[in-house]
Design a protein around this nucleic acid. Structure first.
Lengths: 259, 259
DNA sequence: ACACAATATTGACAAATATCAATATTTATT
DNA sequence: AATAAATATTGATATTTGTCAATATTGTGT
């Protein structure tokens, strides 16, 4: 996969634009036809069935699959939004970043989820970036294809609306945390989010780095280290090489609420 | 209209909940039948027609109309989400706030817009608050009614999805500004947002207070005053009792981008 | 027109958080 | 296994932004 970065001055919008053109090299994945054997494919199909897609629609949306290595960009903020993405395997983080690459993560994505719904209509550019935090497999669905299905499949449209609702609610919560709270509360919010919404466990694995928690909380990495040490000494969490374990969720929620 | 505030400890969620029950008193407005005379009603009907609603659907969603005075709460964060709202007259601000009432505004709403789409599905509580910044008239539509229309009216569903896309894009932009930028850039972003997206003019009227700009930028009111003075002395804006006028949008955009 | 309340403004200062630098630890690569 | 690279940790310090207090201005209701 190739990124071509073009910075140009857009006369009409009087604005510098960082245009990142994402070129997927045609490879075995993009060329392969859908095979229902593999375990993950089965789960993906189940997920899509539950959303109300027919067999042929499922075939359409799973037709093009791309593998991303850890750290690779799945989509770049500001680039042309060609695809809606379905995460089949691995973990992604979605974020907004400024021109100096200071970045704020607003969502961690697990399989099986849809990424890029915000680009379905609107100004055709991704307003966020997305990066693989582990090696991941993603199905790319052209926007028009996705739009067609929504227009013809009521059940699917309704499920997509449900996802939009959830995305908005999540964003309101994140914005409230990042903008209105102090550092301790922000970190607690991030840990609660990761535990309850993402990993559905009191254990947060080390695939989430200190830096990820920092970007999720809108803080500097060094502060995360300090606050985690604080929470550890309060017996709210325990920390080892492999994971962060939440020992006292009540305490985290009190900190989250009153900070 | 009456607010009943109940603070209770939710044992299941191990969380203090501030439950604000919003009781609308039945009055002439809620009892009145739809009258197509008045000018604003006509515009509202046009708006709803463009969204693909039939005459009877329009009648349904405009049936209950409530007037809010300046400063009144239209909906309270954390309260039970019963209604989707359509703004017919006036201006609202939507925000997230923490327990100490530090609040961040993420959207200014003008007529004719729909508020509360994020509550259509999900956990049944408003994740944001909304307040009238001028006296306003709002149509309340029960969630189930709104949901029914979406399920049966494809065109409308598609338009609603368009709104969701826009809301998400706006939120990403706001989050990027509030979380990743410095104060000058944040204020410029707010002014650009107000000018381009809300008032569609280089003049921002005084119905938007310094405090509103502060909440929109995620800063303290005093800092807004200082930064506006800075922008004024740079000839980027001019300020008088009635309005802020943007003189040099390019400059604001450069500040916004590089800050 | 007057009094009161809300909003705007300014300066001094405090608090929170980021930054920088140095080092330790862990993971990845050959 | 050795080395390099990435991530984590700690302390000292700088910067940004918020807070507080005092005052000015504007808007509102009688």
């Amino acid at each position: 996969m190739i990124f071509v970065n073009i910075v140009y001055f857009c006369a009409q919008r009087k604005y510098w634009i960082l245009l990142d053109i994402l070129i997927y090299e045609l490879n075995d994945y993009t060329m392969r036809t859908f095979s229902p054997d593999d375990e993950n494919n089965k789960k993906l199909v189940d997920f899509l069935k539950k959303l109300g897609l027919s067999a042929s629609e499922i075939k359409t949306v799973t037709n093009t699959e791309i593998e991303f290595k850890k750290g690779e960009n799945v989509c770049k903020q500001g680039s042309f939004a060609s695809y809606i993405m379905i995460l089949k395997e691995g973990w992604l983080k979605s974020f907004v970043e400024n021109i100096h690459f200071k970045s704020t993560v607003f969502k961690i994505t697990k399989p099986f989820s849809i990424i890029g719904l915000s680009c379905l209509y609107g100004d055709n550019h991704y307003h966020f970036g997305c990066q693989a935090i582990t090696s991941s497999k993603v199905c790319l669905v052209e926007r028009v294809v996705f739009d067609d299905i929504i227009r013809t499949n009521n059940k699917f449209a309704s499920e997509i609306i449900r996802m939009y609702s959830n995305s908005l609610q999540n964003l309101y919560d994140r914005l409230n945390s990042i903008s209105n709270k102090q550092s301790l509360s922000k970190v607690c919010d991030s840990l609660i989010y990761l535990s309850e919404k993402i990993f559905e466990s009191n254990v947060i694995p080390i695939i989430i780095t200190r830096r990820d928690i920092a970007e999720l909380s809108g803080l500097a990495t060094e502060n995360i280290v300090r606050i985690l040490a604080e929470l550890k000494s309060a017996n709210a969490i325990s920390v080892n090489k492999k994971e962060i374990t939440i020992l006292d969720m009540d305490m985290l929620k009190r900190f989250s609420c009153f900070g």
